[in-house]
């Protein structure tokens, strides 16, 4: 029998810490993340009877967490600072990856990423992924995680943030380029170097 994190104190602490890290990657605001996680636990306790055991408790609690995050974001005006998100784009040096004709520069060209499937089974990989998400500029990360963590469509992100859809595409692209560079440098290329 796996332990039930909602009744086992040690497991509960672990779960809470993971939820907090996740909420903070999304919100970029520690205090707000604490509130959201607290709300999530209250909802989870209330809805305890509706948990059917089809998924793990963690997966179930994370689905409540994502809903709570969506509500928290929608109730906040100016969750994303639109003028800042544009200037943040310059921090992700997209142009350094390509030459003037739009071809890959030598050092930026994609190499084979060794065994992404195995990477995903390695808990160290998830730490690196979190570090890399955390490295994204603040407002860029908020837009990116609205899309990728919460699965919001670009027009929903536009309604919440006041950004144009084409601008959102630009920000998402930059975020992915930045994340890929970080994963290359901190995970896939260092792995490759040891082989």
């Amino acid at each position: 029998m796996p332990t039930d994190p909602l009744t086992d104190p040690a497991a509960l602490t672990r779960l809470r810490r993971e939820m907090l890290r996740f909420a903070e990657l999304q919100l970029r605001d520690r205090a707000l993340a604490e509130d959201v996680v607290q709300d999530t636990f209250i909802k989870a306790m209330d809805k305890r009877d509706s948990f059917e055991g089809r998924a793990s408790i963690k997966t179930w609690v994370f689905s409540i967490l994502r809903n709570t995050l969506i509500n928290a974001i929608r109730s906040r005006a100016k969750f994303v600072d639109v003028s800042t998100v544009e200037s943040e784009g310059e921090q992700v040096a997209l142009d350094a990856l390509f030459d003037a004709n739009g071809r890959w520069m030598d050092g930026a060209r994609s190499e084979v990423w060794l065994a992404p499937d195995q990477a995903a089974e390695n808990s160290a990989f998830w730490e690196v992924l979190e570090v890399c998400l955390n490295d994204l500029p603040e407002n860029t990360a908020r837009v990116f995680t609205m899309r990728e963590f919460l699965g919001l469509a670009t027009d929903e992100i536009g309604q919440t943030t006041g950004m144009s859809v084409s601008n959102i595409h630009v920000v998402l692209h930059r975020a992915r380029m930045g994340l890929r560079e970080c994963l290359r440098q901190r995970w896939f290329e260092t792995e490759a170097a040891t082989c």
């Binding site: 996740f22 890959w104 992404p116 992915r176």
Partner: peptide, 27 residues
């Protein structure tokens, strides 16, 4: 190179989706 890039984008999407569903190995 672009073909690998495309695969990397999809890998990132899958990984982040797992992260957001709480389907990562317990830490």
């Amino acid at each position: 190179a672009c073909s690998r890039f495309d695969g990397q984008m999809q890998f990132m999407r899958t990984a982040i989706s797992r992260l957001s569903r709480g389907e990562t190995p317990d830490r």
